[in-house]
Structures are given as structure tokens and as C-alpha cells.
Design a protein around this nucleic acid. Structure first.
Lengths: 130, 130
DNA sequence: AAAACATTTAAACGATTGCTTAATTGATTA
DNA sequence: TAATCAATTAAGCAATCGTTTAAATGTTTT
């Protein structure tokens, strides 16, 4: 084994042109088409990232058909108030929850019930796993 | 303002009992029920975490109805081979993709078309945003 | 058998994430 | 208006994540 360094340079660098595989690649001619296709899911992972935290999916699920104050949520999830508040702020930034101050308390609720469909779909996927 | 420390202790600690709010909480009596409800979405965020990376959603979307080798994917996404390989390993661990060695190349494809439903659902959610 | 190619694996690193503690703000009550 | 309560904000920190570089593995070709 020799010239390891040179080969690694070729192997690891980001390749911008389309002839990465020297041998015949079935999709060689389709690379441009596939690059266009992939644009369709660009930015989508942002929503998934929000749901990618256990606490946040739980909060969203709790707020489905429910109006809860921060300390309720903290109590149910057995978490600190600041921790919950941080998550709510992020969910608010994504327009997933809305809030309404009532006296000392701030009540949160879903701003967009649509998000529950995503959770339900994930539940179905999860059910298939077992 | 005095006794800030003591109040913070009360305010910030994780509370295991149900009387976090001193005032009347509408869901005070429901805390246990809501804790049971929340279990329904436990573990779900793991799938979302997988999709929470832009590269991985793209790979999954690419592999829908397609069979691609690692260097194809790397070329399309303009990423290094090891980076793509790492993501594929994770997707494989979640049984989302399967692979088949054909000579020098390894071809990946979706192991579970179901995952595309989740992506489609997210696309719909995204469309509503604008 | 040696060289070439596609892929994987391992180690290291820089950036991000989610929590905690501490302090602050906003509102109500005594 | 002072004390109390709910919630937010800010700073700091440990853990996780995704990448890179470097080396190794598996397969084919010469």
C-alpha cells in the first residue's frame, strides 16, 4: 500500500463535478436531475429538529386540545421551569405554540394542530417497527 | 428583593410532586392522567432526530424509488465519502435503508418506504407555513 | 500478486444543544 | 408598596453531533 496520502486527498474531498465514480454508475447521467429533486426536501429537517427533542414532542402532544401553564408542563414532565420555558420559546419561534397571559400565569396552547399529524405519522411508523 | 437564593431553589429544582403552582391550576387534578398520556409519544423523537439532519432527509428522499451507490450520493450532495458513509450507517441502524454489495460498489435503497410518508407530511406542514 | 477503486472505520475537532444556576421581569396580593 | 408568585432571560458548562483527516478493508483488474 503506497501513496496513501494522495489517494485520501481524492477520496475525501468534496467533489463538485459529476465523475466521482470511475466505473459505470447507473445514475451518472441523472446526477443533475437528482440534485434538483433533492431540493424538494431542503429545509424540511428544521421541523424534524424541533421534534427531535423528546421534551418538545411531549410538550406539543400535551398541548393538543389542552391549555396549560408553564408550571403545569414542568410538573407533568418533572423538569425545571427554565428548561421548559426555553423549549416553549423555541416552539413559539416556529409558530407551533401560542401563549396567553392570564394574571400571573401564562397559558400555552397549540398554534397549529397540523403538527399533530406529523406526530401521529411517526407513531404509525414506530408501530410498524415492532 | 431578598432571599433570592432560597426562592431560586424552589423555582428551579425539578419538582416531583404535583403542587408546583401555588395558585389554582386547572389541570391540577389531571397531572397523573397527563403523565400517562405523554407516555404515548415517548421514544418518538428518536425518529425525528434521524430526520433532523438535512443530509439524512436528503439521502432518504434520494433513495425513494432509487438504488444508489455511496459515491453517487456523495456526488449529488457534494459531500465527502466518509461523511455520507457515516449517515448511511446510522440510517442502516434504524432499519431505514438496506444495502447490497455489487462488485466494488455498495448500493443503498430504502428498507422501509413508510418513512417517506413522514417526509411528505412535513412537506405539507411546510407548505402551510407560507 | 500488485495496483486501483469503492467503501468503511477510527480518531480528533469544532460547533451546537439542552441543561443548570442565578438573576430579572411582570403581575397579583396582603 | 412590599412581598409573593409565575415566568423569562442570561451565563456557563457538559454532552452530543457532524465533519474532517488518515488509515484500513473488500473487491476487481491488470
Amino acid at each position: 500500500m503506497e501513496n496513501t496520502e494522495e489517494r485520501n486527498k481524492i477520496n475525501n474531498n468534496k467533489i463538485n463535478n459529476e465523475d466521482l465514480c470511475d466505473d459505470f454508475c447507473p445514475s451518472a447521467g441523472n446526477i443533475e436531475k437528482l440534485r434538483e429533486k433533492v431540493v424538494e426536501v431542503a429545509g424540511l429537517s428544521e421541523i424534524f429538529k424541533v421534534l427531535g427533542d423528546e421534551t418538545r414532542t411531549k410538550i406539543l402532544y400535551l398541548l393538543f386540545n389542552n391549555k396549560l401553564c408553564v408550571c403545569d408542563i414542568a410538573s407533568i414532565l418533572e423538569m425545571s421551569l427554565p428548561a421548559v420555558s426555553h423549549h416553549l420559546r423555541l416552539l413559539k419561534a416556529f409558530r407551533l405554540v401560542k401563549y396567553a397571559r392570564e394574571g400571573k400565569m401564562v397559558y400555552y396552547s397549540l398554534d397549529d394542530d397540523h403538527i399533530i399529524n406529523l406526530i401521529r405519522e411517526a407513531q404509525e411508523h414506530f408501530a410498524e417497527e415492532r
